[in-house]
Computed example of a mutant assay.
Amino acid sequence: MSLAGIQAAAVTRPAPAPLRLLPLPQGRLPGWCDRFLQPVDAGDIFATRLWHDTTLAHALPRGATPLLGLCAEETALLPLLRGASGALQSLTTPYSLAWRPLQARGVGASAWQTAGASFGAALRFRAPLRLEALAEDAPGLEEWLAGIASAGLAVQRYRHFGNWHEALVPGAGWAGYLAARPPALRSTVRRKLDRAGRDFRFEMQTRPGPALDRAIAGYLAVHAGSWKPAEPAPGFDPALMRAAAAQGALRLGLLRDAAGQAVAAQYWLVSGGRAWLLKLAHLQAQRAASPGTALTAMMIRHLIEEEAVQQLDFGRGDDGYKGLWVAARRQRIGLVLAHAGHPLGLLALLRRRLAGWMGR
C-alpha cells in the first residue's frame, strides 16, 4: 500500500493508545524490555541489550536524560533521549551505526501504523524531535511514519551518513573476495601480508580474561598514537569490547612488533553471519609499513575462512578506504518530526517550505 493509501485508511481508525514516556534511572534497560530486543546472535546487533545497555552506561551526551517511549498498548518501544534543552531525540550518539523503533515479538506488521499514530499524537504541540541513523528500507518504517503523519506531524527526511557494506558471494572464500577488489588493493594486500608475516605478530581476542585486558590496553595505546582525535566517550569502546566478548560477539585484532608493542588494532562485532567493523587505527610512526591494511586483510580473511560470514559492514561514514574493501553504499537517514502547534515546529515547517520554493 502507498503512503497516501495508508494515511487515507488511518482516518477511520480509532484514536491510538497514548504514548508512555518512562525514565531510565538505572542507566540500563529494565528486564521487561527483552520482548522488544533481539538476541545477540540474531544478526541485528544494534537492536540488542548488549548495544543499548553499553550506550546507556558509557556514551550518553552530557546533560541528556534517557527515556523509553512505549507506544500503542506496548506494541513498540522507542529508546529516546531528552536533551539539555528539553527536546526529545533518538537514543543515538557518535557511536551509533543504526537506530530503529523496536517492535514487540509476536506483533503483526499492521501494528506499525498504530504505533506511529500513538507516537505522533504525543508529539503534538511539542518542539521538533530528531531521529537519526535509520535505514531507509527498515521493515515497517513507511507504515510507522504514516501513522505519525496521521497525527498531524510533518515528517522531514535528511541524509545522515553513508554506510559501506557488501554481501559476500557464497562459496567464493578469501581468494574470491580478494579477486573482486580493485587491482591496486589486491597488489597492496599481497605485499603487506608478506611483510606483516615477517615483521609482525597477528593476535585476535574474542573471550573475557587477562589476554583480552592486555589487548584492549594495546588497542587504546594504538588509538592514542594514531591520527584519530580523542574519543567523545573514552569508556565506550573498552566497555563494548568486554560486553561483546562475554557474549561471544567480539573479534579484536592486533598486530604486534617483535617487542610486543601493538602497531595496529581494530575490533569487529559478529552476529548471525554479519560482521561490523566498529573501529580501527594504526600508529602514525608505523605508517610506512601499512600495518592497518595488513590487519584489515587478516581480519577479513579470518571472518571469511573461519567464521563463514555472509556480510561485511564498514559502519558509519564515507571514508575513502571503505569503498576499496566493500562494494556497496547505502544511505542512513535522519528524520525531523515537526508540529505547527509549537513555535519551533512552525519555524521548521516554514524553513522547509522556503527551501522548496527556492528549489533546494
Rank of each mutant, 00 (worst) to 15 (best):
M1Q: 09
M1V: 03
S2D: 13
A4S: 08
G5W: 10
A10L: 07
V11M: 05
T12A: 11
R13H: 07
P18W: 15
L22S: 10
R28D: 14
W32L: 15
W32V: 14
C33G: 13
L37A: 09
L37T: 10
G43E: 11
G43C: 08
D44M: 13
D44I: 05
R49E: 15
W51Q: 05
T55R: 01
L56P: 14
L60F: 08
P61R: 03
L68F: 12
L68W: 09
G69A: 12
L70S: 11
C71M: 06
C71Q: 12
A72L: 07
T75L: 04
L77G: 08
L77P: 11
P79E: 06
L81V: 09
G86A: 04
A87V: 08
A87H: 13
Y95Q: 14
A98T: 09
L102M: 12
A109D: 12
A109S: 13
G116D: 14
A117D: 02
G120Y: 11
L123Y: 07
F125C: 14
R126G: 09
R126T: 15
L129I: 04
R130M: 07
L131C: 12
E136F: 07
G140A: 03
S150F: 11
A151F: 06
A151Y: 09
A154V: 05
R157H: 03
N163F: 01
L168T: 03
P170L: 01
P170T: 02
G173S: 00
A175L: 00
G176H: 00
G176N: 01
L178H: 02
A180D: 01
P182M: 01
A184K: 15
A184P: 00
R186L: 01
R186G: 07
V189P: 08
R190V: 07
R190Y: 02
D199E: 11
R201C: 15
Q205E: 15
G209I: 13
G209K: 11
A211D: 15
A211H: 13
A215G: 10
G225T: 08
G225R: 06
K228H: 02
P229K: 13
P229S: 13
E231W: 02
P232W: 01
A233Q: 02
P234S: 12
F236K: 05
D237L: 14
M241K: 00
M241T: 07
A243D: 09
A245N: 04
A245P: 05
Q247F: 02
L254N: 10
L254C: 09
L254I: 07
R256V: 14
R256W: 09
A258V: 12
G260R: 15
Q261Y: 12
V263C: 08
A264Y: 08
A265W: 01
A265G: 06
S271A: 05
G272K: 02
G272I: 07
G273N: 06
L278Y: 04
L280Y: 00
A281P: 00
A289Q: 14
A294C: 04
A297V: 02
A297N: 05
E306K: 08
V309N: 01
Q311H: 05
F314D: 05
F314I: 04
G315Q: 03
G320V: 03
K322T: 04
G323K: 03
L324I: 00
W325H: 04
A327Y: 02
A328Q: 15
R330Y: 03
I333D: 11
L337W: 10
L337G: 10
A338D: 11
A340K: 06
H342E: 07
P343K: 08
P343N: 10
A348M: 00
L354M: 12
G356T: 06
G359E: 06
